[in-house]
């Protein structure tokens, strides 16, 4: 895991990973947002047969991150399953991979709008919110009172940089000194530009950490849209 970048929140350091996961060294905890397992097969009933490999791709990626970071705890920030029937559709081999992860690392499934009730038979425990020291972990960002801090997912942020006439758009972490919104981890999850209305009012003087194909790049707010 690359340790070149740090996102500081409430005096704690968080380490963004190129995969979109976020590692909290003070808690030996790995955070993953918006996995959207089985998004690929979610439209099967309508006759849309997308390549059904997205869960495998995402879970293998997760396994690689875990092997590198060796966390003692794993927390999913919601929308881990694309829909309530995802558990029924997941391929046996992919399910085995998921179970092997939750069997070895204590896991918490935070609920999201796509999975208000995550499956109960996949290991780990379920919670609506989790406190990591002074930081609240939840799916959707909430208005924050004085001194409150949060890490959330839900929005699937992406940022755009224009360089020499080329427009480069990547998934990103976006953060100011009160909040981090994580990029979506799932291999079929789309992304939403940080200039869109959904981000309005969430951040003050923010920075973004863009996930390039080989490295993470940090930019101040003025440089991106």
């Amino acid at each position: 895991m690359s340790r070149t970048h740090r996102i500081c929140l409430g005096g704690l350091d968080f380490i963004p990973d190129l995969s979109g996961a976020l590692y909290a060294p003070d808690f030996a905890t790995l955070l993953v947002a918006d996995l959207h397992l089985e998004k690929g097969t979610s439209l099967a009933r309508r006759g849309v047969h997308l390549p059904p490999y997205d869960s495998r791709e995402s879970l293998e990626q997760l396994r690689r991150v875990i092997a590198a970071a060796k966390p003692q705890r794993l927390i999913f920030l919601g929308d881990s399953f694309h829909d309530p029937a995802a558990r029924e559709r997941i391929d046996g081999q992919d399910l085995a991979l998921l179970l092997s992860i939750t069997a070895t690392i204590p896991t918490i499934w935070i609920t999201g709008n796509h999975d208000p009730a995550p499956p109960g038979d996949i290991g780990g425990t379920i919670a609506a919110e989790v406190a990591l020291g002074p930081v609240s972990l939840r799916h959707e960002p909430k208005p924050l009172g004085d001194g409150m801090l949060e890490i959330a997912g839900h929005l699937h942020p992406a940022a755009t940089v224009v360089q020499r006439g080329h427009r480069i758009r990547c998934r990103c972490f976006i953060a100011d000194d009160r909040r981090i919104v994580m990029p979506a981890f799932g291999s079929y999850t789309g992304a939403l530009g940080i200039g869109s209305d959904a981000f309005a009012g969430l951040f003050e003087d923010y920075k973004v950490w863009m996930l390039g194909s080989r490295a993470i790049h940090r930019f101040p707010a003025a440089r991106v849209r």
């Binding site: 997308l50 390549p51 997205d54 291999s187 999850t189 789309g190």
Partner: peptide
């Protein structure tokens, strides 16, 4: 737009799992 998946993502996933599709 909410229903569909970006074809670039599909391309990447398909290429790594079934390159002869």
């Amino acid at each position: 737009r909410q229903m569909t998946v970006n074809t670039d993502l599909i391309y990447d996933v398909l290429r790594s799992h079934q390159p002869d599709h």
